[in-house]
Amino acid sequence: MLRPLLIALALSTVAGCATTPSGPVSSATVAPYRDEVALAGRIGVNYSHDGKKESLTVSFNWQQTSTTTDVTLTLPTGQTAAVINVTPASATLTESGKPPQRAPDLDTLTRKALGWTLPVSGLREWLQGYATDRDGKRFVASPANDTVITRDGWKLDYVSWQDDQAAVPQPKRIDATRIVLGEAVDDVNIRVVIFPSEK
């Protein structure tokens, strides 16, 4: 089942970057990066496969600690499509009704499952409004500073915020487009919508 697998791998690959932001953040109105995060939302992926444009959408539950990331992907029917577990030692993808696939890391897992590596990293940071720009500098998103091209070639647009008037706004929607030599390419486009946290 390529479609749930593709989105599972998109999420698992971006989940693999577990680095804590380097260097201080200059603005006092920016939420500090958190190693421990629990989020829920929806992710949509547009991609090309065998010359045809495809798209799919799943809901996700995201749990991360300083060393692990666990993601559960749910289809619109309510069925669990895949469960992803990432640790410093391994990456595991379990699709419904199939034996788990394991690899030492996410790049190996994506190559094993798809035959090619999905070139995404950093969602652990993106979901919190952080990224590393193409010059290797720390980017912190805000309603006034909402676009960046990352070091690994993704253009991130922070389209909307949970509350853009809040003292510390949190991302609500993030659009990610693959960039090659300054131009958008249509192999993979990702839209992430983060649901408001339950208080």
Rank of each mutant, 00 (worst) to 15 (best):
L2V: 06
R3F: 03
L6D: 02
L6Q: 09
L9F: 05
V14R: 01
A15F: 07
G16S: 15
A18L: 14
P21N: 11
S22I: 13
S22M: 12
P24A: 13
P24R: 09
V25K: 12
S26H: 08
A28F: 09
A28Q: 13
T29R: 14
R34A: 15
A38E: 15
A38P: 01
G41W: 08
R42L: 06
I43R: 05
V45T: 12
S48M: 02
S48T: 15
D50H: 09
D50M: 02
G51K: 11
K53W: 05
E54G: 03
V58Y: 03
S59D: 12
S59V: 00
S59H: 08
F60W: 06
Q63E: 12
Q63V: 14
T67M: 04
T68E: 08
T68F: 00
D70V: 06
V71M: 10
V71N: 07
T72A: 10
L73S: 08
L73Y: 06
L75M: 14
L75T: 09
L75V: 02
P76K: 00
P76V: 01
P76T: 02
P76F: 01
Q79N: 08
A81I: 05
A81K: 01
A82H: 03
V83F: 07
T87L: 07
A89L: 11
A91Q: 07
A91R: 08
A91L: 00
E95A: 11
E95T: 15
S96V: 14
K98E: 13
K98N: 13
K98T: 14
P99K: 10
Q101E: 12
A103H: 06
D105N: 15
T108Q: 03
T110N: 09
T110P: 13
T110G: 13
K112T: 08
K112E: 12
K112Q: 14
G115E: 07
L118P: 13
P119I: 01
V120G: 02
S121D: 09
R124M: 00
L127F: 08
L127C: 02
L127H: 03
Y130W: 00
T132A: 01
R134I: 06
R134H: 12
F139M: 11
V140K: 10
V140Q: 10
A141D: 01
A144C: 01
A144P: 00
N145V: 04
N145P: 00
V148I: 08
D152E: 14
D152N: 14
S160H: 01
S160P: 06
W161S: 00
Q162E: 11
D163M: 08
D164R: 10
A167V: 04
Q170M: 10
I174R: 04
T177H: 12
T177M: 05
R178L: 04
I179R: 09
V180D: 07
G182W: 04
A184S: 15
D186E: 07
V188G: 03
N189E: 14
V193K: 00
I194L: 13
P196N: 07
S197I: 09
